[in-house]
Nucleic acid binder design. Structure first.
Length: 482
RNA sequence: CGGGGCGUAGCGCAGUCUGGUAGCGUAUCGGUUUUGGGAACCGAGGGUCGGAGGUUCAAAUCCUCUCGCCCCGACCA
């Protein structure tokens, strides 16, 4: 056990220093590198490939549910940003401004988008005039700048990539349905593809999006016991339509303000992948989202280029034809052992080894990244065997993470229990809440934990609010967060 | 924005206390032998010691100022 952990060098142990481990893995796996600007990172090709896979899959899901992509400008005039009062107040501290055009000061300064509600709503006001124009469901894949004080690669950077969906509807009910259906897409995607279990729920008023009526969220638990908000879906009500004048004439010939939603997930998802699945040897990527699902390492000895390589190439083509993302590492400049370590750092779920002994026995060696289990399998039916192994790894990662979540979810019935659990064990604390903002304050002040989600289904085991003792209205999850 | 840590070869670091020829590991380049868990040996290249100013015969080292990065908090996806 101890010995195997040392195959990969130069990564701090996950159990020793979690933060350091996290940044070590990102650097060693070449996901990202620090850029010469404070809080800004370069997403390197390997990291970007993961983002592309996330993007492609979500994009299909959005399009299948009637959304279209568009592109709105990076720069937002200050006057537009100021139209929705709560919105500007929420974002003001982290907006970056353009004040000069060449050497001339601008008459009105321009915000670099911290989110695009303002610019998009200003356009929606032009485009929406009739109930026939609704619903309008547009998404964009883009970059965002928020001047954050503390940054960490993927989890919080000054500039990041995301998708933001912005929809307008004819009724409150329809907007609510849209908000919830997107929440469901996020949940499905994160669990099925990223193999990360999620908790969905509503944000309390103190945590909701600036300008929203309601914010639903997807929360995920990280190995250090902190909760990471992995996605949000906001029901904006008529707050923005009133501020921006998005009105339509309904079927009864009355003017009405549109009901809106907005929702997004970011490159932060990559950070979650790293933390949830990785180990002391580096990344472990779920097959569904891994840029390389299988790496073929030919054992290079003697006349391997004449004997082993041709067979490795045959296998490569067969797997590729069967839609397995595979690469053949035929570099003769590195030894097999070096390659093993390298691909482990990069989290490739299955390694396929092919050497002289295997050639003789008409077999290959399949190595599972999770536990380094070796299986000698016949070349015949390889595609089937491999697909099964990939599926097993995918489900093993999810069930492993689920088991961890279950073990880190604690029940608390009083304020002191909540604080005690947060301080000694961290993790998620399930408790009851009366709904008053006053009752969130002591937990935040004493344990710096907040309500991460108000659960859809109240748990009947709770008889009173943990803080004030009044009748509970909600079952909630308290946790420290990223 | 508070607390702590760190800037020396691509990367990881020693050297700083006590000033005196800028080093180690790894990576890189060339050569030979190797290759089933990061190969071995021989040789080579690579530095304005984060920046500016000062003290000194002499500064990576001492003093002053400054910039940047990381970690932990408070705030945010």
């Amino acid at each position: 056990m101890e010995k195997t952990d040392d195959f990969v060098k130069q990564i701090t142990k996950k159990s020793e220093d979690f933060s350091r481990w996290y940044t070590d893995v990102i650097k060693r796996a070449k996901l990202a590198d620090y850029a010469p600007i404070k809080g800004v990172m370069v997403i390197r090709p390997y990291g970007y490939e993961i983002w592309e896979l996330i993007r492609d899959q979500l994009d299909r899901m959005f399009k299948d549910t009637g959304h279209q992509n568009a592109y709105f400008p990076l720069l937002i005039p200050e006057s537009l940003l100021k139209k929705e009062a709560e919105h500007v107040e929420g974002f003001a501290p982290e907006v970056a401004w353009v004040t000069m055009g060449g050497s001339e000061p601008l008459e009105e300064r321009l915000a670099i988008r911290p989110t695009s509600e303002a610019i998009i709503c200003s356009m929606y006001a032009k485009w929406i005039k009739s109930w026939r124009d609704l619903p309008l469901k547009i998404n964009q894949w883009t970059n965002i700048v928020r001047w954050e004080k503390v940054t960490r690669p993927f989890l919080r950077t000054t500039e990041f990539l995301w998708q933001e969906g912005h929809t307008a509807h004819a009724s409150c009910k329809e907007a609510e349905e849209e908000t919830l259906s997107i929440l469901e897409i996020y949940k499905t995607f994160i669990e099925k593809y990223l193999a990360i279990p999620v908790i969905t729920g509503l944000k309390s008023d103190s945590e909701k999006f600036a300008g929203a009526l309601k914010t639903y969220c997807v929360e995920t638990l990280m190995p250090d016991g902190k909760s990471l908000q992995a996605g949000t879906s906001h029901h904006l009500g008529q707050n923005f339509s009133k501020a921006f004048g998005i009105r339509f004439e309904n079927k009864n010939q009355e003017l009405e303000y549109a009901w809106q939603t907005s929702w997004g997930v970011t490159t932060r998802l990559i950070g979650a992948l790293v933390m949830v699945h990785g180990d002391d040897s580096g990344l472990i990527l779920p097959p569904e989202i891994s840029p390389v699902q299988t790496v073929i390492v030919p054992i290079s000895r003697g006349d391997w280029k004449e004997t082993i390589l041709p067979q490795a190439e045959n296998i490569y083509h067969e797997l590729k034809q069967n839609n397995i993302r595979v690469i053949l590492d035929d570099r003769d400049t590195y030894t097999p052992g070096w390659k093993f370590s390298e691909w482990e750092v990069k989290g490739v779920p299955v390694r396929l080894e092919l050497g002289p002994k295997d050639l003789e026995k008409k077999q290959v060696v399949l190595v599972n990244r999770i536990n380094r289990d070796k299986k000698f399998v016949p070349v015949e039916n390889l595609v089937e065997t491999l697909k099964k192994l990939l599926a097993d790894i995918q489900s093993e990662l999810l069930s492993r993470a689920r088991a961890f979540n279950a073990s880190q979810t604690h029940i608390a019935r009083t304020e002191s229990e909540i604080i005690d659990i947060i301080e000694t064990r961290r993790g998620l604390v399930k408790t009851a809440w009366c709904g008053s903002p006053q009752c969130e304050i002591p937990i935040k002040e004493k344990a710096s934990a907040t309500i991460r989600a108000i659960l859809d289904q109240p748990d009947s085991q709770f008889e009173k609010c943990a803080i004030c003792g009044k009748a509970p209205r909600h079952t909630v999850i308290f946790a420290k967060s990223y």
